[in-house]
Design a protein around this nucleic acid. Sequence first.
DNA 1: GTGAAAGCGCTAACAC
DNA 2: GTGTTAGCGCTTTCAC
Lengths: 338, 338
Amino acid sequence: MARPNRATKPNTIDAVAEAAGVSTMTVSRVMRGKDNVSDRTRDRVLETARKLGYIHNRLASSLASSRSEQIAVIIPSLRNSVFPEVLAGITDTLDGTGFQAVIGVTDYDLERERDLVVSMMSWRPAGMIITNSTHHEEVDRILTAANFPIVEVMELTGSPIDMCVGLDHFAAGRTMAQHLIGRGYRRFGYLGTDHETDRAAATRFAGFEKSLSENDRSIEAVLTVKEPSGIGLGRNNMRSLLAMSSDLDVVYFSNDAVAAGAMMYCMAEGIAVPGDIALASFSGLEIAGAMPTPITTVSSPRYNMGTTSADLILARVEGRATKTITEAKFELSIGAST
Amino acid sequence: MARPNRATKPNTIDAVAEAAGVSTMTVSRVMRGKDNVSDRTRDRVLETARKLGYIHNRLASSLASSRSEQIAVIIPSLRNSVFPEVLAGITDTLDGTGFQAVIGVTDYDLERERDLVVSMMSWRPAGMIITNSTHHEEVDRILTAANFPIVEVMELTGSPIDMCVGLDHFAAGRTMAQHLIGRGYRRFGYLGTDHETDRAAATRFAGFEKSLSENDRSIEAVLTVKEPSGIGLGRNNMRSLLAMSSDLDVVYFSNDAVAAGAMMYCMAEGIAVPGDIALASFSGLEIAGAMPTPITTVSSPRYNMGTTSADLILARVEGRATKTITEAKFELSIGAST
DNA sequence: GTGAAAGCGCTAACAC
DNA sequence: GTGTTAGCGCTTTCAC
C-alpha cells in the first residue's frame, strides 16, 4: 500500500479525531471504554463518531493489542439438537461481554476438525471450546502448544488438553442399566447411532454393558446404524432390532431422539410400552417427557455445560484461575416407559 | 520457553522467511496459494512453515488487504431447530471455501439485533446473512450503507436491503387454509407462538385467516402463547385451546413442534386425530412425518435457504452478479392428521 | 519469480 | 487527561 495518505480516510479513528478536534489516542480510549477521558471529551467524541457512522475496527484493534474477542467453538453437528443447546449456553454467557462465538462444524470428521482448528487459530481467538475429547492427533499437538484457554466439553476426561466440562457417560450408562435391572428386566436390546462417530454414546453403551455383565446379564440384540442420529433412525430401525431377537423386554437407546422415534414406531404398530416392551434412553430432551408415555432417560445438563465452558474461558481470559476439570451431573428421569 | 535468539518473532511469516532463506513476500505468496512462486521455493517454504508450526495470521492479513473471510450470520434462536438447519446449510456451503460463519443470536430482541449487527461489522465481515426482514430501524440504516453483500433469509420481501432468500409465508398460510376448506372442515382453531416475536408465523396466520374469510369462514378460537416455541407449548396449551370453543374440528398451528406437542396431548387424552379433531401445521420437521399419525404440514426448504444464502454471498464476494430476490418454494405434505 | 519499502487502522508505552 | 512515537503481522505496489 505505497499510497500517499493525504486526506484522512473515512471510518477510521483518525477521521473521528480530526472531526472532534482531539488526538487519535483519545478516540481510541473512548471507543474502548477506558475511563481516563474527561466526560466532556468523551461525549464530544461519541457524538462525532455517531454522526460519522463510525464503526470501530476490531481487526486493527486485535492486531495492535494482540488481544482478540472471538471464542472459537467447534461442534460435530447442528442437526442433533444437543449441540445447539450447548451453543445456546455459550452464546448466552458471552452475550454482553464483548466476546463472540465463532462456530465450526466438523460433521464428526476428525480431518475436518483438524482443518477447522487450524483455520480458527489463524484468527487468534481468545479461547476455544471444543466438543468431545477424542481428537485428531495433530489437534492434540497444536492445542497443547496453543497459548489460549481451551475447554473440551461434553465428555468427562481425566487428562484434558487444558480444561474439561463434561459428563461421565460410562456412569450414565451404568445408572440406566442398574435402574432396568432393578425393575426386573432380563432381555436387553440396544439401538443407536454408529459408535465410531458418536464416542459418547459408545461410552454409555460400554457402561451399560459392563453393569449388565456384573449382574450376569447381557445384551441380546445390538443394532447401530450409520445414519444421522434422529427420530428417523429410531422410527425406521426399531422393526429390525425387534426382528433380531424374539423376546426382548427392554431396549436401551443411544439418545432420546432415537428412543422417541422407536416409541412412535411402537405406537403406530400397536406395541404396548412398557407392557410389551420397555424403552430407556439418554439426553433429557423435551420430546422424551412430552410423549404420551414419557420416556425414562438420563438427563444431561447441555445448556449448563455451555454456560460453564464459556464462564471458564472468560475467567481465564480475565486472568482468574479456574478449575481444570468440571464434572457435570446427570439425572435419572424415570418416565412411564419402563 | 525456547525462543530463537534472533530479533525475528516466532510464528510470523518473517520467521518462516528467515528459516527458509527467502523474503517475507515469498512466504506471503505461498501462504495465500498464489501461483507465481516456483515449485521448489514453495515446497521449501511449506516444509519450513510446517516444521515451525507456523499458523497464518488472518487478523493481519485481513487488515492489510482489507478483505475478510468471515460471514456474519444473525439468527433469532438456537432452540428452534429451524435456525440450526438454516445454519447447517450455510456452514456446509462455506466449508472448504476459506470463509467462516460468525454467528450471533438475537433471542428475538430487536435491540440485541442492533447491537449484534454493529459488533459484527467491527470485524469487517465479507458478508452478512440475517434472519427475517423486520429489523431495528438503525439496522436498516446501517446495513443499507454497508459495503458488503447482505442476505435476508426466511421471509420473502419485495424490498430487501440487498438480497433476499425467503418463503412467501402468507401464501403458505393460504395454501393450508385451502387444503382444509377442501377437506370440508368448518370450525377452525389456531394455536401458536407469540405473533409479536414470530413475524413469519404471524404472516402465515394472516394468509390463513384471509383465505378463510374469502370462503366465508372464520377462526373460532385463537391462542397465542408468549413462551418459547416447542413441543411443550403445544403439549401444555392444547387443552386450553380446546376449552375455548366446544366443537372445533380442526386446529392450525404456528409450526410442527407445537403441532407435535398437541398431537401428543391428543394421544395422551385419547382424542382421535383426525376423527375427533384434525391437526395442520407448518415446517416439515422430521417429527411431523414420524408421528404414528403423520401431521399434514407445509414443508419449507430450510437447509436449502441456508445454502442458497451462502451461495449468493460467495458469488457476490467473487464479483459475480447475483439475483436479488430468490423465492424459496414450499410444499404441502398431506399426512394422516387431516 | 522474487524482493524492498510503505502502509492497513489501531493500541502499548511513555511523555507531558 | 491527553498526545507522541512505534510498532502489531501482513499485503500492496512496484522494481528488478
